[in-house]
Design a protein around this nucleic acid. Structure first.
Lengths: 140, 140
DNA sequence: AACCAAAATGCAACAATGTTGCAAACAATT
DNA sequence: AATTGTTTGCAACATTGTTGCATTTTGGTT
């Protein structure tokens, strides 16, 4: 784990520091998206709020994570897959937010379908956000 | 216009007040989505911030407007069409955000395509957000 | 191993955004 | 015109996000 984290950071041209290690570890441990406040809580009192902001920003820039807009106005972040690096995101998958447990996950296997825009519009990025009941919650 | 506004408010079971009239007027005048701060600015210094929050909340609850999550973490609101009332939104259209002018519009004519979710997931609402260059900006 | 430049961190201060309780003002109805 | 319930503005507060700067740490070099 330790090794993997340092490797990932170096591969992303980020110097290896305690804060970055810890935050990246959280993403690797947690299967789903994390918000800024999630991270602050989970990381304990160890890191300054500002550091968390800057770390997340750096991770996004380097393509380690991508951000997910949510209806409740809290940006969440999720790990990018390996084929997504150098700022060249391939976020062509659907994001799912559970109305029950609040978890947000990437449905990597569900590709966003193509759409036809009206004449004159040029699409650069598409985001698809599904909310409902997730697998774990539906099973209860 | 005056009449239409009062009518709309009453139809939505909202008592007619100066603030609500003004804010609804802004939505009718402006073809596109408005953020909270847009409204504060456009409404002048007339209304308290809190009133704007509560008015938008009331409008959403009554189905006059719907909210649009954006990648930059600023919720925007847009008028609902007539067939969308009583909290029963029919937000089955795509939202477009221009990276150039920042405008957000509802593409009513572009329906969100159906998708197949993995086993166990239940969709309740789907939001599709396209960013790029809008018609007006592309024409320049 | 010690040094150095560049980068990251923590701190403080600040700005912006969102929430709550309460008293005063107002709208709809009788 | 009076009454009742709703809406508003204010104040205070909580949360979230930003910026500048001094200090510490990292990664590379001698």
């Amino acid at each position: 784990m330790e090794k993997k984290i340092d490797e990932l950071l170096r591969k992303s041209q980020l110097s290896v520091t305690g804060g970055r290690r810890k935050i990246l570890e959280l993403f690797l441990q947690h299967d789903g998206a994390l918000s800024h406040s999630d991270i602050e809580k989970k990381a304990g009192e160890k890191f300054d709020r500002v550091t968390v902001y800057r770390t997340l920003q750096a991770f996004v820039e380097k393509g380690l994570i991508h951000s997910i807009p949510t209806p409740d106005n809290s940006i969440r972040y999720a790990l990018c897959k390996d084929d997504c690096y150098g700022g060249q995101h391939r976020d062509d998958h659907v994001h799912f937010i559970c109305n029950n447990c609040g978890n947000t996950v990437c449905l990597e296997e569900v590709v966003i379908p193509a759409i036809r825009l009206p004449r004159g519009y040029v699409a650069q990025q598409v985001e698809m956000l599904v909310s409902g009941v997730c697998k774990s919650c539906a099973a209860l």
